[in-house]
Design a protein around this nucleic acid. Structure first.
Lengths: 200, 200
DNA sequence: AAGAGTTTTTGGACGCGGTCTAATAAACAC
DNA sequence: GTGTTTATTAGACCGCGTCCAAAAACTCTT
């Protein structure tokens, strides 16, 4: 399966260990109050090594989210061509949400207020959304054909992902009594898709 | 109307002059390639004075947008209570778009590719829009009552504003042949609101 | 066992954005 | 003139992010 013996110097750390070190510090000192140096130090590694695993300080907040979001392209790809475009989009997004591991609620969402400057977090979250919006937009452009123009695919992509983000936010802040993420996402994305389905 | 004689040292600069200085430099050197120092220097003022007018470098890109977005709260406030909530939201957003001055297309959107890192700028623009989501969410919470729960107001707020953002993006990149911004916004926000109107 | 190749880690330096504080400058009122 | 108010400024500071060149740790070859 895996290549048994990788060549070169072995890794001394991993995204997970850095993430855990960061999590501790964030809870102790808030996000804004901890430096990359401190994270790296607690993980027993140098500051540059941190940037070897993460492109930015805020990336450490979104490891789980990133892993989940990566599935969107695949889920869209395996949609049958005979099911209406908006249905395919809705189902794909819901399936992605359902695939998210149960326990993993990103602290970026739960402890938004404890984390200090909210701006950095919002920006980093939005950047992730934007990235997936390209995937969604391209899928819709293909499905709807050129006659749909540029606006509708882009609007659907943004609106659907924003609705999903809202759902994730409410889900995260719902506390321990929360239902599965996919429920919230379905409730938010469903109407959005329905509205556009009627407009096509 | 205005207070005639403001007391204290008179201002030496303004958001507009700084914005114009920045615009020149961005076209010459791209956004990422110009420093705040250079902007301030060209405007004949010190670096700290720039931060006296703008909270961050990227703020200088969105002066017009910010002015337009400020109207949303007012537009929502003057919606009659007998018109359905989603209709009120849609109309308010469209009126805000219609109030945007015709010529002013933010370069942040038109010259996205010249501006260096595209993601950061788009995210910074979206962040402005999402700031308005609180206004929208509160309006909807009031209108829909407690029975609606937390999710729907938040989802509507995000989805509607995201659709509006998509519209603005397409509008900006449409070139000189573009129709009024409000047209694009109506086309994107209409279906979004319709979908949720049916779900309430 | 010695070297060659590969990959990761590391140190050190740099530029820039953003914040803070204290000093100074430009206006007005008296 | 003195005092008040507000804007500008210098200067320092911190932290993020980037870059580069060197060292370290391991495998494979001979």
């Amino acid at each position: 399966m895996n290549q048994a013996q990788p060549v070169g110097r072995p890794r001394r750390s991993s995204k997970r260990t850095l993430e855990e070190a960061a999590a501790e510090l964030f809870l102790e000192q808030t996000y804004a109050g901890t430096t990359v140096d401190q994270i790296a130090q607690r993980a027993g590694v140098s500051r540059n090594t941190f940037f070897n695993y993460f492109g930015s300080k805020s990336d450490v907040l979104w490891v789980d989210v990133d892993e989940t979001l990566e599935r969107l392209a695949d889920e869209l790809a395996l949609a049958p061509t005979d099911v209406p475009a908006m249905d395919a989009v809705r189902d794909a997004v819901i399936r992605v949400a359902a695939a998210h591991p149960d326990g993993r609620v990103p602290w970026a969402l739960t402890q938004v207020d404890l984390m200090g400057t909210r701006d950095d977090l919002e920006a980093s979250g939005l950047r992730r959304l934007m990235k997936q919006s390209e995937v969604l937009r391209d899928f819709l452009s293909r499905r709807l054909g050129d006659g749909a123009g540029d606006l509708l695919p882009q609007a659907v992509a943004f609106a659907v992902l924003a609705a999903a983000a809202a759902a994730a936010g409410v889900w995260a802040s719902a506390g321990v009594s929360r239902r599965p993420l996919a429920d919230y996402v379905a409730e938010a994305v469903g109407p959005t898709c329905a509205g556009f389905a009627a407009a096509i």
